[in-house]
């Protein structure tokens, strides 16, 4: 189960870095945080899971989108 989650995280990280639209990258970052929160729960670490879920899927995504909103959204040249 952990190996499957780690492979999914690797795939999402590569997608995050090569996509031409920055909003897709932010959503992929949020998905990586959610998968890692699930991984922490499976490894018997409930405190770290709560913190990672609230920080990764909540605060970090909001901060990124709050900055992209006032600047551009397309990655003009990768």
């Amino acid at each position: 189960m952990t190996i499957m989650l780690l492979v999914l995280m690797l795939g999402l990280s590569i997608f995050m870095l090569v996509s031409r639209d920055l909003l897709f990258g932010i959503i992929a970052l949020s998905a990586v945080s959610l998968l890692s929160a699930l991984l922490f729960y499976l490894q018997q670490a409930p405190d770290v899971a709560i913190t990672e879920a609230a920080v990764g899927a909540g605060v970090s995504t909001v901060v990124f989108i709050g900055i992209i909103r006032y600047t551009e959204r397309k990655d003009r040249d990768p």
Partner: peptide
């Protein structure tokens, strides 16, 4: 499970 950091970031959300 819980504590200062966990409650703090959920409060921020």
């Amino acid at each position: 499970p819980g504590g200062g950091f966990q409650g703090g970031v959920v409060t921020a959300s």
